[in-house]
Design a protein around this nucleic acid. Sequence first.
RNA 1: GUGACUGUAGCUCAGAUGGUUAGAGCGUCGGACUGUGAAUUCGAAGGCCGCCGGUUCAAUUCCGGUCAGUCACCCCA
Length: 424
Amino acid sequence: MPSKLGAPRGTQDFFPPQSARWIALESTIHALAGRFGYGEIRTPLFESTDLFVRGVGDTTDIVEKEMYTFTDRGDRSLTLRPEFTAPVVRAALEHNLFAQGPVRLYYLGPIFRYERPQKGRYRQSHQFGIECFGFAGPEADFEVISLAWNLITGYGIADAKLNLNSIGDDECRPRYREALLAHFGPHAASLSEDSRRRLDRNPLRLLDSKDPADAPFAETAPTFESVLCAACREHFEALKAYLSLAGIPFTVNSRIVRGLDYYNRTVFEITSEALGAQSTVLGGGRYDGLVRSLGGPDTPGVGFAMGMERFLMMIEALAPQAEPPRRGVQAIALGAQARAALVPVIAELRRALDVPTFADYQDRKLLAHLKLADRNGARYALIAGSEELAAGRLVLRDLQDRTDRHVPLGSGKDVAAAVVEATR
RNA sequence: GUGACUGUAGCUCAGAUGGUUAGAGCGUCGGACUGUGAAUUCGAAGGCCGCCGGUUCAAUUCCGGUCAGUCACCCCA
């Protein structure tokens, strides 16, 4: 590499044609969220560190070791956002949005986590997510999940799986914790080192351990469903009924626990085999206590976050892109005189056409220009050389049909109109 | 943070048990085929063989470190 200046570890650059896939996905998302009645929120890339410590949970991995935290010149501790939910709640509180009833927002943008990169995991990645505040009932859970499912099925992703679980509320979670301790405690000596450490800290985590040493105990652990309080059970059952009615397939997976502290009741994930070890493309759940814990009114909430890189990876693996059709016009000028005649035409074409107008301003042979047209995937070549100038008409060649036609060489506007007419 | 594997041209990759000027294909640029497209043909440019150090008469090759990439663990989107 000629330069020592490379992109920082775990970050990446996107060029055409890859960048076009991002644009396409983003516009699909804007349209989908709009149809569900969600409006876009844009928050700062960095926030007060304290927001994440309080919002995400000070014992989570994100806060303990993954944040990009720095001190600014005013001695404030700031952090590049590692997730969106806490900033969204902060913004909504700051602008008093919750005083006006339910709030539906979606977001799109980069997040930052200091992690070792691997397949589907980066230090700067991008998330799309939605937040639905103000509804305590399972209808909101259903709405959020069905928006996610719409996006998946819209791309025809066949191998995507929806996993669902309930992790209870303040009433039943302590009970479950005790049940887990009673189950795992006696076998502590046989558990993996990681799991022994997690045992009293966050016993829920033992359930999704991949360590073979833990497998036999995780298999036989009591499920959360078995200790759910009546209210949580009712909520969960109603959500499942809504999903079944809508024909959204799901699996109740008692090992889904999610990593952030603020979740309660419903948690869910959408996974795909195409993603390697980082198989979760989308994850979310209910967070009824979060707004209050950040100093706001008692406002229930439910939402999800989706990894854009992972989603793109998934659709590329499962629905390979077809060769894009030829489109646009390559403007070809042979010589300085022709170039001078063509420049105003190019300007007009770019005003009149909604497909690209390509132009190369170097002195090349016709052959070279036509090769450029091929590389650009142009449908037409508009050729201006000395012969054309003398005859007062340009050649418009259809590169797909290999047929030629002529357009009279008048003002830029006239030529553009003729090309528009001819390529219609 | 831990582990494994990898680092040679813009890209994909050869290569030498350590020994003069490190190769190919693709791409780029130029010429040929009188101005009509994915071709053919000839030629050229382009490499601190990731970086630093060690061993050696000699290192791109061996050793150590470091940085980066890939994948996995941890964890998550």
